[in-house]
């Protein structure tokens, strides 16, 4: 078992209790179909789910679609043909999720969608964070800080790095950003930068945006995994400064990964919206296992992760509520 596996599984099991997922006596075969393992969030979620299920005596069939929606559909069909008892899905996007959920339910196989919700929430077990609320909490924090630091009549430049809008999570995060900004609409000029959830795309678009508008006051990235990309654009331009230093750009993200935790501690980032990874993993697993146990083939349920915002102000009290800080404390970034 790798260090990360032990780490994630340990954290998950500690949070959930090892007995929550049944024993080998009621062992089930679960197909875990995921789109890729590109970010810390997905890696940690993948490890928490696979390790917890395996250690509880269940068989996990893993399928990595490598970011190909058609391949994921074929893989899920293969799983159904193999006679799996249930499916946990991390889809490529909301649209393909809807198709795959329907495919599984038409074949009488219960399916749970982890974190990235289908565009149609009415079918399947859907575990999803309240992205809009979490994002607005994080952005509220940096908006307040930015306004406090600026002259009262100044108009500030706020930049949002938008995710792939085919993903409802990205839509929710964008909505949350605007909900916070619109409270002070007269004080902000907004610049949107598309990332398509791709670091290379984000890099190219952010460089162009910062070249056109060098005086950015506030930045919100729709995912923490883009902070290294933002740093690579800001640092050569002298914009990567700690809070309190002249020229600091107020920054917030969303996910709650280990990198964001470190950057908040270092003072470069001011807030991040936190999805409770282990809560979501637990809910996905327990809901699918409960459906299998009850013989329910088409369970429909939306389970919401309320989340919260970790900020420079509440870091001391809430640090260990964030999954990324738990991983950071265990040495994740020193691997």
């Amino acid at each position: 078992m790798t260090r990360l596996t032990s780490l994630a599984a340990g954290a998950a099991l500690a949070a959930l209790g090892a007995g929550s997922f049944g024993s080998a006596a009621s062992a089930a075969t679960i197909c875990f179909a995921f789109q890729d393992l590109e970010t810390e969030f997905w890696v940690a979620g993948h490890q928490a789910i696979t390790t917890t299920l395996t250690e509880a005596g269940h068989t996990v069939i893993e399928r990595n679609a490598n970011e190909d929606a058609n391949r994921q559909l074929e893989q899920v069909r293969d799983c159904i043909a193999q006679g799996v008892d249930g499916i946990i899905l991390i889809p490529q996007d909301g649209e393909s999720a809807t198709t795959i959920v329907a495919e599984a339910q038409d074949s009488d196989v219960p399916i749970a969608v982890f974190n990235r919700p289908p565009s149609d929430l009415s079918r399947g077990i859907v575990v999803v964070a309240d992205n809009a609320t979490i994002a607005s909490q994080a952005v509220d924090h940096i908006v307040a800080k930015a306004l406090e630091a600026a002259p009262t009549d100044a108009t500030l430049n706020a930049l949002i790095v938008v995710g792939d809008l085919g993903d409802p999570n990205a839509v929710g995060r964008k909505d949350g950003f605007y909900a916070a900004i619109d409270k002070h609409a007269d004080r902000f000029n907004v610049i949107e930068v598309a990332s398509q959830w791709d670091a290379a795309t984000a890099l190219a678009n952010l460089e162009a945006a910062v070249t056109a508008t060098p005086d950015i006051d506030l930045l919100f990235t729709s995912s923490d995994f883009l902070f290294p990309t933002i740093r690579s654009v800001f640092e050569p331009r002298g914009m990567w400064k700690k809070s309190g230093d002249e020229g600091h750009v107020w920054m917030a993200g969303l996910d709650g990964d280990a990198t964001a935790c470190q950057l908040i501690k270092d003072g470069y980032v001011d807030a991040t919206g936190v999805q409770d990874l282990y809560f979501e993993a637990e809910q996905s697993m327990s809901a699918i296992l409960a459906a299998i146990e009850a013989g329910e083939t088409q369970p429909n349920q939306v389970i919401e992760d309320p989340g919260f915002a970790l900020t420079s102000d509440n870091l001391a009290e809430r640090e260990m509520d964030m999954w990324g800080c738990v991983l950071l404390a265990a040495g994740f970034l020193n691997k």
Binding site: N66, N70, R71, E95, S96, T99
Partner: peptide, 14 residues
Amino acid sequence: RLETGRPTLGGGNF
């Protein structure tokens, strides 16, 4: 079959 028009269809290892 995917019930979706996708600009990235045919990408990856297609």
